[in-house]
């Protein structure tokens, strides 16, 4: 189980390949579910040129660890990995990687989705979008 908050850019696929030696020791895990979130260049009808992602050092990591532990209580998981960016981002930059290993796909898919939703709704991250005519804090999540 691993949680990482990064100040600079990362390649989610390289992270995944490098985590615990990639496929090594994963013979029990018949299922790997992976989610990668990247920065969009639009939001609420506006073109977004960049984003500043702020977090609460200490609390953010603690929260991500807490939901990782909770996921292992809800599903039979072999392992999980969460990597999240903070700082200055450009459209197309990877923001988040969530990977879950389990014996079977149902647990892997469900836990991966659940971790993402928990992360989005409760983990302390705040976005400030850079628009053509200034910047704005994003202060709500919309259904979708």
């Amino acid at each position: 189980m691993s949680v990482e908050v990064l100040e600079s850019g990362f390649d989610p696929w390289a992270k995944l390949a490098g985590y615990h030696g990639g496929g090594e020791g994963r013979e029990k895990s018949g299922a790997t579910a992976v989610f990668v979130g990247t920065m969009r260049d639009f939001n609420e009808g506006d073109e977004v040129h960049g984003m500043l992602l702020e977090h609460y050092p200490g609390m953010t990591e603690r929260h991500l660890e807490k939901i990782s532990v909770e996921a292992r209580g809800r599903w039979e998981l072999d392992d999980s990995l969460i990597v999240h960016r903070v700082g200055e981002l450009q459209p197309g930059d990877p923001i988040v990687l969530v990977a879950v290993w389990s014996a079977h796909r149902k647990a892997a898919f469900e836990a991966c989705r659940w971790l993402m939703e928990e992360l989005k709704s409760r983990a302390p991250f705040w976005k400030k979008e850079q628009l053509s005519d200034g910047s704005r804090w994003v202060e709500h999540n919309t259904e979708g």
Binding site: K120, P124, W137, T142, G144
Partner: peptide, 12 residues
């Protein structure tokens, strides 16, 4: 004691 606005992970 910390105060902050709603967290914003993005749309579903």
């Amino acid at each position: 004691v910390a105060f902050f606005p709603p967290v914003t992970g993005g749309e579903r």
